[in-house]
């Protein structure tokens, strides 16, 4: 499995994905200038922009790396040679996943440092009303990483059943959007405002709420931007949720993938 992780990382770097990200990250340079458009929260705006950029880059990575990793191996017939080696299918899948997740973490660390520099620069020019809570900013990026690792696991699960490129990519994007609103929908159907909704709809929505990943818990942007306190209890539950949910996704993926026919 570690050899597969190594090969996966090598592949991502050799495909110049990292260089691509670094080019995109040049947008960081523009952020201090852009943030001065704000009247009352220049530092907050620069934090918003940097965190959003990091989030966006990670979304792209998880959709395209996660959604195409297995597909590419099957499409380019790499699976015949690799799965003919004494590797278990599960080990192969987990290695592919692990390599992609590790790359995401690496990118987040590099971008996180860049973001810190940008925000610190802005804050030195336009001191914010409230001091930046760097711990919360780091936590926000970390939880973003967890969220997108979960998304990668979703992409892998879809990849194990799909033979095409489109289903994993668009399925992952759809899951991402749906996972961001499930909490809102759930709260809506449990509020008096939804009393006109049919019970079947409500049950369906509740079912989806429990089935789909819930990404809202991972979003600590508001806490990071405005220095709001983060409840430790909530973080613990979110991490536990992450571990269990990713574990389930991967075990389903491994089960499906080990039964898949490599024709």
């Amino acid at each position: 499995m570690t050899t597969i992780i190594g090969i996966t990382l090598k592949g991502i770097f050799r495909d110049r994905v990292f260089q691509g990200i670094m080019v995109t990250a040049c947008a960081f340079v523009l952020i201090p200038g852009l943030a001065t458009l704000s009247m009352r929260q220049v530092t907050e705006l620069s934090l918003t922009l940097t965190l959003s950029l990091i989030s966006f880059i990670m979304l792209m990575l998880s959709v395209f790396l996660g959604g195409t990793s297995l597909w590419k191996d099957i499409e380019r017939r790499y699976t015949f040679s690799v799965l003919g080696l004494p590797l278990s299918r599960q080990g192969y899948l987990l290695g592919r996943f692990g390599g992609t997740a590790l790359f995401l973490l690496l990118v987040a660390v590099v971008l996180g440092i860049a973001a810190g520099a940008v925000v610190a620069f802005t804050a030195s020019v336009h001191p914010p009303d409230r001091p930046i809570v760097w711990g919360t900013v780091a936590l926000c990026i970390l939880f973003d990483v967890l969220k997108y690792i979960l998304l990668i696991a979703v992409a892998f699960l879809i990849s194990t059943v799909s033979t095409s490129f489109f289903l994993p990519v668009f399925g992952t994007i759809a899951t991402f959007l749906a996972g961001g609103v499930t909490q809102q929908v759930y709260e809506y159907i449990h509020s008096p405002a939804s009393k006109n909704l049919s019970p079947i709809m409500k049950q369906l929505a509740t079912g989806l709420y429990y089935l789909l990943p819930n990404f809202s818990a991972f979003d600590l942007k508001v806490n990071a931007i405005y220095g709001l306190p983060v409840p430790a209890n909530g973080l613990f539950l979110t991490v536990a949720y992450f571990v269990v949910y990713v574990g389930l996704l991967l075990s389903f993926s491994a089960a499906i993938f080990s039964r898949r026919e490599m024709r």
């Binding site: 090969i7 090598k10 592949g11 050799r14 495909d15 380019r76 017939r77 790499y78 015949f80 040679s81 690799v82 003919g84």
Partner: peptide
Amino acid sequence: LPENPAFYDYL
């Protein structure tokens, strides 16, 4: 050796 083999071509 698979038929018409393909290996990770970035290696």
